[in-house]
């Protein structure tokens, strides 16, 4: 039995190495399945919880155009959460169970959403900076080894492309506007820069799952590689906007053709991961409330569907 199992695992790895996608009914190591469920559901939870900080400004958006764009964007995030939950469901996880894990605090989601949105400039910063970071993480996932996840990510990335642009446009409008608008933009960047760098996860040396995930091609770049890419991409954009990146160690390194930059406050990172972010409680509470207060609605729809079915069968 054991040798047969080994062969299966080897065959599986060979398919991965050849870049042949794994599909729901294919044989897969249990650890691969579990890792994927964990990663995809975390990703879905991040979309779901990620609706809250931006949703916080839909009712206060400063123009009708911005209100429409922001609502459409937050709605997209609901859609992305849904695509991702669907992908995880093909692996035998139920959405209700994944949500229960979110609500109980067992499942994680991106720490960035545990920070508060305090000004309108936060909508620009989230779109430009946070979505920019998310896209770097997500584009490689369009080629991830698990078919349904990769397909969900293709859809997500296609839809995300307007998110970053609308964020940048908000920032540009602020930076070209009145002095208080520019100050609002700078203040938002000051608050979001470091938490955004944390989005790529712990340093490679402290990221125990990276190696296996790379081998399975669930992940295609390491945390540090992506973080470096992000800084190199964003610094010129901040310069274009006339904003200052809040890092006094930031410096172009000619030899590596990239920026050197300061170290993230890892103590803060782990605090937030452990649920002690400034809005961690509020975010989880909001999601739990929505779910619990919606229970009677979901039950009513099921009860009605059952009645209809019964009547149709009786007729």
């Amino acid at each position: 039995m054991e040798t047969l199992e080994l062969t299966q695992e080897e065959q599986f790895q060979a398919r991965i190495d050849e870049d042949i996608r794994i599909e729901p009914k294919d044989w897969m190591p249990e650890a691969y399945r579990k890792t994927l469920i964990r990663q995809i559901s975390q990703h879905a939870h991040s979309e779901l919880v990620g609706m809250l900080p931006e949703g916080n400004w839909i009712t206060r958006a400063p123009s009708l155009k911005r209100k429409s764009i922001l609502l459409a964007k937050v709605q997209d995030e609901a859609g992305h959460g849904l695509y991702l939950y669907s992908a995880a469901e093909t692996l035998g996880a139920s959405r209700d169970q994944m949500l229960a894990d979110l609500h109980s605090g067992k499942a994680k989601y991106s720490s960035i959403f545990n920070y508060p949105t305090l000004s309108w400039a936060d909508m620009g910063t989230i779109g430009w900076l946070v979505d920019g970071a998310a896209i770097l993480n997500q584009v490689p996932l369009c080629r991830t080894s698990y078919g349904p996840y990769a397909r969900a990510m293709v859809r997500v990335c296609k839809e995300e492309s307007f998110h970053q642009r609308q964020g940048f446009e908000i920032m540009q409008t602020l930076c070209e506007g009145a002095p208080e608008q520019k100050a609002m933009a700078q203040e938002a960047l000051n608050r979001w820069w470091w938490p955004t760098l944390m989005m790529f996860g712990p340093k490679d040396a402290d990221s125990p799952n990276t190696e296996q995930s790379m081998k399975w091609r669930i992940k295609r770049f390491t945390n540090d590689e992506l973080r470096q890419k992000f800084v190199d991409m964003m610094v010129p954009q901040a310069e274009f906007l006339g904003l200052t990146v809040p890092d006094d160690k930031l410096q172009w390194n000619e030899a590596k053709q990239g920026y050197d930059f300061g170290d993230v406050d890892w103590a803060e990172f782990w605090d937030v991961v452990k649920g002690n972010g400034p809005c961690s409680r509020e975010r989880l509470q909001a999601r739990t409330d929505a779910w619990e207060q919606g229970a009677w609605v979901r039950e009513a729809a099921l009860a009605h569907a059952a009645k209809r079915k019964q009547r149709a069968e009786a007729a």
Binding site: R95, R151, E299, R308
Partner: peptide, 30 residues
Amino acid sequence: SQKEWPLWEVFIRSKQGLDHKHVGSLHAAD
């Protein structure tokens, strides 16, 4: 669970003349 809305597979015809294609899934009561 008994309380979860059933899962449905969705197929979409993107324009007249083309086949319906599987695009994903969702939950619905009916």
